[in-house]
Simulated scan of single mutants.
Amino acid sequence: MTEKIALTPKTHTAPPARFSHGVRKGNILQVAGQVAFLPAEEGKPRRIAGPALREQTLQTLANVKAVLDEGGASWDDVMMIRVYLTDVDHFAEMNEIYDTYFAEQNLTQPPSARTTVYVGLPAGHLIEIDALAVLD
Rank of each mutant, 00 (worst) to 15 (best):
T2E: 12
A6T: 08
L7A: 04
P9Y: 07
T11K: 10
A17S: 15
A17Y: 09
A17N: 04
R18A: 15
S20C: 11
R24Q: 14
K25T: 13
N27F: 03
N27G: 09
L29Y: 09
V31T: 08
A32N: 14
A32W: 01
G33R: 05
V35R: 14
F37H: 11
P39Y: 03
P39M: 01
A40G: 00
A40E: 07
G43R: 07
K44Y: 10
G50W: 06
P51A: 02
P51S: 11
L53C: 03
L53H: 06
L53Q: 06
R54Y: 13
T57H: 05
T57A: 08
L58Y: 10
L61A: 13
A62I: 03
N63F: 09
V64K: 05
K65S: 11
K65C: 03
A66S: 13
D69H: 06
G71F: 03
S74F: 07
W75P: 03
D76M: 04
D77Y: 05
M80W: 13
I81D: 01
V83H: 03
V83D: 03
L85R: 10
L85F: 10
L85A: 14
L85M: 11
L85N: 12
V88P: 01
V88A: 15
E93A: 15
M94N: 02
N95K: 15
D99R: 10
T100W: 12
Y101S: 00
Q105F: 07
Q105D: 01
Q105H: 00
L107N: 02
T108E: 06
S112R: 00
A113V: 02
A113Y: 09
A113Q: 14
G120R: 15
A123M: 08
G124Y: 09
L126R: 11
L126N: 09
E128L: 07
I129S: 04
L132V: 13
A133M: 08
A133E: 11
L135W: 07
